[in-house]
Structure formats: C-alpha cells, structure tokens
Design a protein around this nucleic acid. Sequence first.
DNA 1: CTCAACTAGGTTTTT
DNA 2: CCTAGTTGAG
Length: 759
Amino acid sequence: MSYLERLNDKQKEAVLCTEGPLLVLAGAGSGKTSMMTCRIAYLIDELGVSPYNILAVTFTNKAAGEMRERVDKILAGLDNPRTSDNLLIATFHSACLRILRVHADLLGYGKDFVVYDTSDQKTVAKGIIKDMNLDIKRYTPQYLLSVIGDCKEKCLDPEGYLRVNGENFRSKVVYEVYKAYENILRKNNAMDFDDLLLNVVRLFEREPEVLGKYQRRFRYIMVDEYQDTNTIQYKFVKYLAEGYGNICVVGDDDQCIYEWRGADIRNILDFEKDFRDAKVIKLEQNYRSCSNILKAAHSVIKKNRGRKDKELWTTREDGDKLVYHLSQDERDEVRYVAEQISKLKNEDSKEGRPLGYSDFAVLYRTNAQSRAFEEGFRLRGIPCKVVGNLGFYDRKEIKDVMCYLRLVQNPKDDVSLERIINEPKRGIGEKTMEKLKALAEVRGESLLETLSDREVTAGLSAKAEAAINELADLINGYHTEIENMTVAEIYDGLLARSGYLPALQAANTVEAESRIENILELRSAIDQFQKEQPAGTLMEFLEGKALASDSDKLPDGNEEEDEKEKVLLMTLHTAKGLEFPVVFMPGMEEGLFPGFRAMDRPEGLEEERRLCYVGITRAKEKLFLTGAKGRTLYGKWTSCSESSFIREIDPILLERDTPVEPKKSVYRDGYAEKPSGSPFRGGSSYAAKSAGSVASGIMSQNRSASAPIALSAGDRVAHAKFGEGTVTEVSPDGKTGVIIFDSEGRKKMALGIAPIKKI
DNA sequence: CTCAACTAGGTTTTT
DNA sequence: CCTAGTTGAG
C-alpha cells in the first residue's frame, strides 16, 4: 500500500471511501489524478475488485490513456502484481461507442455503423435545407443543428420537441428538419456524437436486461471532470449507478467551461441532492502553483455567484508577481512574448533546472489568435507547436480519402458517397446526382446499391458509366474483403484504383503536390495505427479518428527529440488539465476575453471568468497577461480596451510592465519600418507605391508583414495556396494587387491580395 | 460538366 | 482576412 503514503489526508480519505456516492471537489492542481489512480489501484489491490467491474470516465482520450498508464504502473509495482486488463477507462463517447457496437441491432442499426462528425452533420443539414426549399438565411445549418443537438441532449425526439415548443410555423419547420435529419442518419447507418450517448440511454430505457447487465458489471464507477457533464451524460451515469450505487465523481465547479455545449453546472452543485447520503470531500491543497498565482486566481473567481465555497492553499513560496503588459497591436504583443521567452530561457526554474522551450505555453481565447504567434515565433526562431486546430482532418484531400474508407466500412453511407462520387471527376454533375438520389429513394436502397445496378449506370454517359461501374465494383469488392485486408492495403488500393491519386499526380501542380504529401502523411498515420494495433480493423481506425480530440494530439513525451522542445500554443479550453512553469495569456481585452458574445448575459460572463481561472491556474511559476491597444480583426483595425479580468486581479499581485517606447525605425523582425502616425491603412497593398517602388511594380503583402512587397514582371514568387510561379502581369490599378502566375507558359491564375512571398 | 473569377458574409470555445 | 458559395464562359 505504499502508493497511499504519497497522498495527503484528504486524498487518502477519498481513496478509502469506496462505497456509496462520493463527490470529490478537487481544485486545480490538487492532485486529483493521483487520487483517482490510487483509488482504482486500491479497489483492485486491496479490495480485490476485478478490473472488469470498474468504469472510469474521463474527458479526453489522452486523459484516459494517462490514467491507465499510471494505474498500470502502480499495479505492476505491487508485491502481488496485477494488470489493468478489462478495466474500462474511456471518454463518455468511446465508452458509449463500445456499448453500442455490441447492441446496435436492438436499436435498429447495423453493427458497422459509422460516426458522423460536425462537418458531416452540416452536409446532411444543408441537403435537407435544399430539399425542403428553406431559406438558408433564416434556417442556417448551424442553427438547425444546434437545436437538434439541444434536443438530443435533453432526450427529446422530434415529437418531443414539438410538444415542448408548441406548434408554430418555425417550430414545425424545425420539427420537419429534425425528423428528416434522423431519417437520413438512420438510413446511412450513421450516428452523430450526440447519438452515441443518446442511443445508449435509449438502450438502457428500452432494454432493462441490457441495463441490468451493465449495472451488474460496473460495481465501481468514477467520473472525472464532472462539472462538465451534460444532462444526457448525467443520465448515463445515473442509470449505471443505480446498480451498486458506488459512484465517485470528481470535479471543480470553478472549472466548468463547457456550459455553452450543454454542460450543466447543476450536476455537480446538486450531486448531494441527486445521490442520497453522498459524502463530500474537498481537495484544496495545491501542489502546482506559487502562492501569488493562487491568490490572483482566487481574487478573480470569487466574483462568481453560486459557487461552492473553497479556496486553494499551498505551502509553496509567494513567487513572482503576475505581469501585465499592454502592447500596441497583436504583432507587438507577439514580440513582447517572444522577448520574454528569450530572456527567461535557460534561466533556472524553481525546480532547479534551466527552462527550455517546452516549459512555456501561450494560452489564448480564440484559435484565430494563434496565427500571429506562429508567424512571429517562426520569424524569431522560437520553435513552437500549435495544439489543435491544425485541421489536418479538415483538409479536403484527407476528408475525401476518409470518405472512401468509410464507404468501404459502411456502404450505406450516402453522405460519403456523395462527396467522392465525382472526386476524381467522373462526369457526374449536380443534375445527374439529383436523378440518382431520387432513384435510390424510390427503390428504397442506398446510393451505392443503386449505382451497383448495371441497368442504372447504363443510362449514363459512356464515360460516366465506365467510371461509376468501376467505383461501385471497387467499393463493394473491398467491403466484402474487409476482414481479409489490412487498413494499409485497403488504403493503398483505394487510392490507386479509384483514380484519386493518379488524378493528383497527373495534375502536376504545386497544390496537388501538397495534397499528395498529406495523403502520404495519412498513410503513415495508418502505419502507426497498424504498429500499435496489429489486429486493428478499419472500423477501429475510423473510430479513433472520429473520436480524437485536440488535446489527444498533445505531445506525450514519445516524440522525436526535435519535436519535444517547443513552446506550446493552444486555446484555454484545450489547456484544461495541463500545467506549465511559465504561461502567457494574450488578448486580455474586453470583447476578446471576455468575448463579446458572453458579455450581455451574467452566466456568460461567469463562464468566461471560470475560463480565466483555468488559465491562471495552469501556471506554476510565472504568468504573463498581455493585451493590445488594438488589433486587426476581420482585416480591419479595431481598438480595444483592457479586459475587466485584469481589474479583478488583486492589484497587489500584479505588476504592470510599462511598455518601452517601440524602437523607432525598424521592426525587430527586419521588415520595413512603420512610421508613427503612418498613413498605411491596414497594410493596404498600394501603400508601397508612395514608398517609391518600381513604376510598374505592384505590391502584394506578405502575410506576416504589414509592409507590402514590391513586385514586377519576371519576379519569382510563392503563394501559400498556389505554389510558385512567375509574375507576368501586374494589375493596372495597383489596388487589387492582381498577379498572374504563369508556369509552363499557361495562364494559371490571377488573384487579389493574398499571402505572396518573393523567392 | 468544369473550371476560373467574383461576392458576400462570418469568429468563441469541442466530444 | 478568409472561405464557401455562386456565376459565367468554354
């Protein structure tokens, strides 16, 4: 039981309290993961509970993986070593997926159902809007999907929605859309994220013996980040806990930051009411941060109403004050942050080792803020990594090939088929597609089934006929062989035989080149997957991708040497659960943080404040808060005022680092000067004309410089999207900055102000 | 049907 | 500033 020795009294109490409902209020950095892993180990080791009878739910796959690792480590070190085999540690979504794979047929789904992500949902919604001839402005896909999501969250089917909202024109439209949406997903044998949870709850409600089976299995249940659970997740937990009643939830109401997504803070606030005789244990000793940081965090969060009363304390020293710095604009802000990093790098941290790049993190409110940092850091040679928002799986070519894969897995997936039917070009246009869809509808088949009928394809143009027959044979062939092939084999085969890769290779353009690169990158992801799970199926591969989250892509210490030493850039949301010696929180401006959308509703502001609290408590030793007098948003200059959160921090704990007068002539990054009181208008492209460029020269902008580059015919240039080319012409007005690329004597394109670099 | 070119509208946060 | 959606010429 040596693992218990490392815990403090409160933690130990939580570990030992295994029977009945337990709420652990675990403040930031209070060692809750240690507590949870020890608790699991204790159950197995001391109480002799089989791992099979334990369920632990976490917020991300990464957290799940880490927890399992730590449990394994403890179990392996015992006198009587055990393993965590059969222990289910997963996110709500993957746990539900696991359950549904077994029982999907009871709900009328095939076992090989696929999971639709948000962009698939959008595609479906758009199709419905079009079919129903709705005004897309009045009924945006986003609006409709959010209503549908809300309903699912509350377990309302379309009829239920109508009942609750009353019948009026608008609600009837939404009702019809919702119904159509459900039909399409069902027909495609697909579930969206919400369905994963909803369907399990339905399953529990409809099939008592299935519920009973899981209630008997999960004798001990633990839920992490309980403050961020929504109604349906609550139901899921509640149902399971009605078995043995040994339910332990861990969370911190001050860190509830997903209310906008349906998280219901009342779940944690009312836990004691929901579960009779619940015990409550508070973990308030913080092992992470210096005292000043904790005090500052508390001075902010105490402004919130209706929170559970608690305050973190530490035995650590006061540490440095927090630093607030006001910059001119976002570029200046990046410069400041970069300077601080360079200054602090190699200085000794409190842990007595020199600070490396990976000890710094920049945590911002919106993803859009990352670009300035990425570019500014690159310019100054600071290695960095943006977590999340990389959008690898959002890229067109990746989505395309994923759709091919999904189709092999689930041939009923019309949404995927529609996406790739003309990719590469097979001569199927909008009109033909309409006909085919209508036909499939009449026949009551999936699109692929219809297309597999030679009599149907015979009605197409000769070219289309051949191409579609080939496509149908390809997909059907792989589908039947799915058991006998590896993911890599399927992938390679699809790429080559669908003509997707050959088409890209034939295009022979720079953008096709980069697409091919991405496709190869996905190929190596498949190799990786196959290495980790030699018996892994296509289904498992697709699931892993569908359920992966941004934080799952965080470095885990297993990467190459040069990948490790990097400053991490991410949103405050993805930073939850992490810690860094030095943290920067840029964009401390009213309207950005707190965001303008949140400011009118008091609950909205409170959630922003919790987010701010989360950010502050990520820092172990140093915290820099920065803001700008103004920044370019939507390409327009907007001036900003100081964030109210800065005022909420106890002034005693905050040092205002007065900006040094910016160096006059040359920006540190070596771009052309920006004179004070400059007539430059947001970097408009013709500005350089007056700066005396070549007569015929027109300018474009370098994305990271507000100073334009003069261009003239003959210059070799590179464009972010279109690759390299030679300037042959220059726009006559010099205003739009039109450049005509000409590679191999062909007119390639003309474009406006776009990221162009001279090479 | 397909591509190039133009245009209007849009920013939180994510399993 | 960016992108997705639309339009018009082959």
